[in-house]
Design a protein around this nucleic acid. Structure first.
Length: 659
RNA sequence: GCUGGCGUGGCGCAAUCGGUAGCGCACCUGUCUUGUAAACAGGUGGUUGGGGGUUCGAGUCCCCCCGCCAGCUCCA
C-alpha cells in the first residue's frame, strides 16, 4: 500500500496515493492536455509528488494551445518519416495559429505530398498513440539520434543557447536534461520517437480532425542564409473542428480584403509588368484616395509648424558618402548612372537633401526648431523575393520630415512628433497599434556609427517619450538604423496583421557629417540634433493598409466616388443630374449611372463598387423634390428632400465618419 | 537573393496522349428600361509573359530571361 501524498489541485488540498499521475488528478475533467506544476508544464502521464501545486491546462489557454500544436508538429514529423524514412528532422515548434516542422529531404514536398501526409497523420491520430517521456543522457541521445545530424547539432547547444541557435529550437532542447518522446501504440510498441523537451498532449487522439497542412516552403537551417535550406511544412491545429473552420474562414476573409485583389477590382492601382517589379501606378480612383490623404496630411503638417519643401529624386553620389548611406547601405540603393563622367544615384532617403536646405544659409537659434517636410519619393533596391503589392515596393513615397532642434529641445520635439503621428493614424480610423523601439546591436559595432554616449542619450530620449505615451512598447534590439535609434508605430489592420507605419528617429550623426550648425544666443556655434519622422512611413503601403482596413469600403471623405446617382428609369436622369450638380458645387464627387443597364443591374454594380451613398430617383421622388438613399448595408431611406440629402452627405464627408 | 509553385483576351477560368485555343463577366452594337444585387440578342478582342530549342505539329516537352504567389533571409 503506497503512502499517501498531498497535492494542491487547482487551489484545494487533496490526499492521493503515491504514484498517482497528473492525468488521474483530472480524470473527471474534459479537455485537460497537460498539468501546470509549480508553474511548469508537465505531461499528464507523469506521477505527482508530495507538496506540489497542480493546475489543469486546456487548449482554452495559450500554453495548452501551444502544446496541442507542438504535438501536431510531432505527428507531422512521424508521418513524414513513415512515408519517407530518409527525411532528416529539423525543428518543429508551435507558431501563431499553428505549427511547422523542418525537414531535410531529397525532393521538396508537392501539394499532393501534403494531402497524402495529412491522411497519414489522420491515421496516426485515429490510432490514439500516446506520448511517452524518456530522459536520456547526452551520450544516449547522440547514439540514438546518430542518423539525425540536425538534432545532434542541437544537443550540443542545449540549455541557454538553444533559443539563440534558432527561433523555436528551445522546444526541442529547452532544459538541461535531454528527453526523447516516444509515440506508443495501443499494443505498447513504439511507433516513433523524437528528441523533444515536451510536454505533449496525452494522446494523438486529442488532435481529432481539427488540423490541416497549409503549405510548404524552404527555410534556412537555424535562420541563416549561409546554412542549407530545409523544407518546411506549415500546418494549423485547433481544439475543435469548429475552430479550425473559423480560422479557415478568417483566412478567406483576409483574401477577400487583400489590397492586391481589391486594387484591381475597384480599379485603384496596378503593377504593369513592363515597368518592372515593385513599381505601382495609381489609376484615377486610387489617385483620389492617395490625393485626399496627401492633401489632408500636408495641411496637418503645415498646421503643426512644418515647412513644405521639394527635392529631386537623384543626386550625385558624393552626397550619399557625406550622409553615410554609402557604403553602409550600398546594397539597398540602385546602382549609379553615369552622367558626363559623374556617378548619380536614385535617392534612397530624403534626409541628405533636407540637410542641404538647412545648410543653404547661416542658421540662428531663432530658426529652431526648423521643420522641413515633403512627400519625398525614394527608390530602394528591395530584393525581388520580398516585394509584395503596395506593402513592399521599390518606389516609396515618404511623408518625411526632419526637425532640426537644439539638443536640449529634442525630447520635446520627439514627444510632439509622436503625438502628431498618433493623431493622424486616428484620423484614418486606425486605432489599434503598438510601439516598437529599435536600438543598436552592441555586438555588431561595425553596423552603427557614433559614440556610445550618443547612442545612450538618443535611446534614452526615445524611450522616455515612448513610455510616457502609455502605449504598449516592444523592444527591437539591433533594429536601429546605422545613424540612430528609432521608435516605430506598428499598426494592426482590420484582420489583425501588423505593419510598420510611422517611424521617429533620433539622429546625431548626420548633423555632424554635414557640418550643420547654428549660432546660439550666447554667440557660440552649436550643432543641432535632427529628428527624422515618417508619419505614415510609405504612402504606398499606407494606401494598401487602408484598402484592407476598410475592405475597399472607404469612408465618404476618402471614397473615389462619394455619391452615385441611379435613376429608376432613363426619364429621371435629368432630375438626378440636377441633384448631382448641387452636390458637385459643394465639392462632392458625384457620378450618374447613365448606362443602359436596367435598374436592378445598376443597383448591383453600385453595390459591388462600394460607393458610400447611392441616390435613387423615380417618379415618387421627383414629384416630391426628394431622393432615396441606398446605403452600403442594403438599407434604404426614401423620399428625403434634396437639401436634406445634400446635408447628410456633406455632414458625413466633413466629419470623416464611416457610413 | 534562396527554395518551391504559377503565368492562356481587361478580370476569373477551361483545353484529354503534343493535333492547331474555348467559356463566364467586362467591353461594343441593337431592341429594351418605373423602385433596391444580373433584361434579351448579336459582336469585337488572344504571336497562350518574352526569347530560344525538340517535333510533321507546342498553351502542353526542354533551356534562358521577365513577372506573380508562398515561405526563408532582408527591410536605414
Amino acid at each position: 500500500m503506497p503512502a499517501p501524498i498531498t497535492v494542491h489541485v487547482a487551489g484545494s488540498e487533496r490526499s492521493v496515493a503515491e504514484g498517482t499521475t497528473y492525468g488521474e488528478l483530472f480524470e473527471d475533467q474534459r479537455g485537460v492536455l497537460v498539468a501546470r506544476v509549480d508553474g511548469e508544464l508537465r505531461d499528464l502521464h507523469l506521477a505527482a509528488h508530495d507538496g506540489e501545486a497542480v493546475e489543469p491546462v486546456t487548449a482554452a489557454e495559450q500554453d495548452g494551445l501551444e502544446v496541442l500544436r507542438h504535438s501536431a508538429a510531432h505527428v507531422l514529423a512521424q508521418a513524414v518519416q513513415q512515408v519517407n524514412p530518409s527525411a532528416r528532422l529539423g525543428i518543429g515548434p508551435p507558431v501563431r495559429d499553428g505549427f511547422y516542422y523542418d525537414f531535410d529531404v531529397e525532393t521538396p514536398f508537392t501539394p499532393e505530398d501534403l494531402k497524402a501526409l495529412e491522411k497519414t497523420m489522420q491515421r496516426i491520430v485515429n490510432e490514439g498513440q500516446t506520448f511517452r517521456r524518456r530522459e536520456v543522457s547526452d551520450q544516449e541521445a547522440a547514439a540514438e539520434l546518430a542518423a539525425e545530424p540536425y538534432k545532434i547539432e542541437l544537443i550540443g547547444l542545449k540549455g541557454g543557447a538553444a533559443e539563440d541557435a534558432a527561433e523555436g529550437a528551445s522546444v526541442e532542447v529547452g532544459g538541461s536534461q535531454l528527453t526523447i518522446y516516444d509515440n506508443v501504440r495501443k499494443d505498447g510498441t513504439v511507433a516513433w520517437g523524437d528528441l523533444c523537451r515536451g510536454p505533449h498532449v496525452p494522446s494523438t487522439k486529442v488532435l481529432g480532425n481539427a488540423f490541416k497542412l497549409m503549405r510548404s516552403a524552404a527555410a534556412y537551417w537555424r535562420g541563416s542564409e549561409r546554412n542549407p535550406q530545409l523544407q518546411r511544412i506549415y500546418g494549423t491545429a485547433w481544439p475543435s473542428k469548429e475552430e479550425l473552420k473559423a480560422y479557415l474562414e478568417r483566412l478567406a476573409e483576409a483574401e477577400r480584403r487583400d489590397h492586391r485583389r481589391l486594387g484591381a477590382e475597384l480599379d485603384l492601382f496596378s503593377f504593369p509588368e513592363v515597368l518592372g517589379a515593385g513599381l505601382p501606378v495609381f489609376h484615377p480612383k486610387g489617385g483620389v484616395v492617395k490625393r485626399e490623404m496627401e492633401d489632408y496630411v500636408r495641411r496637418r503638417h503645415i498646421e503643426e509648424g512644418f515647412s513644405y519643401v521639394g527635392t529631386p529624386h537623384i543626386s550625385r553620389e558624393e552626397l550619399f558618402y557625406t550622409s553615410g548611406h554609402l557604403p553602409y547601405y550600398a546594397d539597398g540603393m540602385f546602382p549609379p548612372m553615369d552622367l558626363d563622367g559623374q556617378s548619380y544615384r536614385l535617392k534612397a532617403m530624403n534626409c541628405p537633401i533636407h540637410n542641404l536646405i538647412y545648410r543653404s544659409r547661416g542658421r540662428s537659434y531663432r530658426d529652431l526648431p526648423l521643420r522641413l517636410f515633403e512627400f519625398g519619393t525614394v527608390y530602394r533596391d528591395e530584393k525581388s523575393g520580398v516585394l509584395s503589392g503596395l506593402t513592399r515596393v521599390r518606389m516609396i513615397t515618404q511623408d518625411d520630415s526632419h526637425s532640426y532642434v537644439a539638443k536640449e529641445d529634442a525630447p520635446a520635439e520627439v514627444g510632439h512628433l509622436l503625438e502628431f503621428v498618433l493623431s493622424l493614424l486616428r484620423d484614418f480610423g486606425l486605432e489599434d497599434y503598438y510601439l516598437e523601439i529599435s536600438t543598436r546591436d552592441d555586438s555588431k559595432p561595425e553596423k552603427f556609427i557614433g559614440s556610445d554616449a550618443q547612442w545612450e542619450e538618443a535611446t534614452r530620449v526615445l524611450e522616455e517619450v515612448a513610455v510616457a505615451s502609455g502605449l504598449e512598447l516592444v523592444p527591437d534590439p539591433g533594429g536601429a538604423a546605422y545613424y540612430g535609434p528609432k521608435i516605430s508605430v506598428q499598426a494592426r489592420d482590420a484582420i489583425g496583421r501588423t505593419w510598420q507605419m510611422s517611424t521617429i528617429q533620433y539622429d546625431f550623426n548626420q548633423p555632424e557629417r554635414f557640418g550643420l550648425e547654428y549660432q546660439a544666443a550666447d554667440g557660440t556655434r552649436q550643432q543641432p540634433v535632427m529628428i527624422h519622422a515618417a508619419k505614415f512611413g510609405s504612402i504606398e503601403r499606407f494606401v494598401g493598409v487602408l484598402v484592407e482596413h476598410y475592405a475597399g469600403a472607404f469612408p465618404p471623405w476618402l471614397a473615389p466616388v462619394q455619391v452615385l446617382g441611379i435613376p429608376v428609369a432613363e426619364e429621371f436622369e435629368p432630375y438626378l443630374r440636377e441633384v448631382g450638380e448641387r452636390l458637385a458645387a459643394e465639392g462632392v464627387r458625384f457620378e450618374l449611372d447613365e448606362s443602359d443597364d436596367r435598374f436592378p443591374k445598376k443597383i448591383r454594380n453600385a453595390s459591388k463598387s462600394k460607393v458610400p451613398f447611392v441616390l435613387i430617383a423615380g417618379e415618387e421622388d421627383r414629384s416630391a423634390g426628394a431622393v432615396s438613399f441606398r446605403y452600403r448595408d442594403g438599407s434604404q431611406k426614401n423620399g428625403v428632400p434634396v437639401e436634406e440629402a445634400v446635408q447628410e452627405v456633406l455632414g458625413a464627408i466633413r466629419a470623416k465618419t464611416q457610413v
